[in-house]
């Protein structure tokens, strides 16, 4: 049961993030929700590769014992880098929208309606 804790927290985080994206009326909060979902997915990938009492997969002459899977960590690293790029771009869009519209309310940021 205790080893399912990471997966349960992943689900809770994803639900929190999606709640923020669907119900929060502020563009910055939408971006925050997206980042929460992203952290949850990263946590999920890392916890997939966890081995009980494993050591970090960075030794050439390992001291022995099981190693944690390195592939999920490499995937997470890539995903974090992509996430940083996404957040930076979205937040800079928010700055520009605020500069031109004077608001960050999602109900008002819809001049493209129809």
């Amino acid at each position: 049961m205790i080893f399912n804790a990471p997966f349960i927290s992943v689900m809770i985080l994803i639900i929190f993030g999606l709640y923020a994206m669907v119900f929060r009326r502020n563009l910055i909060k939408v971006v925050i929700g997206l980042d929460i979902v992203e952290s949850a997915v990263n946590l999920f990938i890392v916890s997939l590769g966890y081995v009980k009492n494993g050591i970090a997969p960075i030794y050439t002459n390992s001291p022995g014992g099981a190693m944690v899977l390195p592939t999920p960590q490499a995937l997470t690293l890539t995903s974090i880098v992509i996430g940083v790029a996404t957040s930076a771009m979205l937040l800079s869009f928010c700055i520009l929208i605020y500069r031109y519209y004077g608001t960050l309310d999602t109900r008002k940021v819809r001049r493209l309606r129809e």
């Binding site: 999606l18 994206m21 119900f23 929060r24 999602t106 940021v109 819809r110 129809e114």
Partner: peptide
Amino acid sequence: MRDIHTGIINDYVGWFL
């Protein structure tokens, strides 16, 4: 159709889910 196309980003994500 006009009522559905609200243009609110929350709704976009909501429809996807």
